[in-house]
């Protein structure tokens, strides 16, 4: 179950074109029946597996596929 769900997350991220960073609640929408804390556990596992990574502006944190899109600096206006 958990492996399937993780696969769904990666597919979601790979399927998005033109956008590389996502808010936490973009992932909770994929699993409407799952509690937010369960979704968080999946994302944490994916971070540990180095498949996704955190991107932080300092005030807000987003998630993205490891190595995808901007690695540093602001997304806007770049």
């Amino acid at each position: 179950m958990s492996e399937d769900a993780k696969k769904q997350i990666i597919e979601f991220l790979e399927g998005k074109k033109g956008k590389t960073k996502f808010y936490f609640n973009d992932f909770t929408k994929i699993f409407p029946d799952m509690k937010a804390r369960e979704v968080k556990k999946l994302l944490t596992e994916l971070v540990k597996e180095q498949k996704i990574e955190y991107w932080s502006s300092g005030s807000t944190t987003m998630y993205g596929l490891a190595g995808a899109g901007k690695q540093h600096a602001t997304e806007e206006g770049e």
């Binding site: 540990k48 991107w55 932080s56 300092g58 944190t61 602001t74």
Partner: peptide, 20 residues
């Protein structure tokens, strides 16, 4: 300054604020 980036401590989603 440009701020923001991949958080550079493995497994951590905060505590580091990238600045370039």
């Amino acid at each position: 300054w440009k701020h923001g980036g991949i958080v550079g401590v493995f497994g951590y989603g905060g505590g580091v604020i990238g600045r370039y």
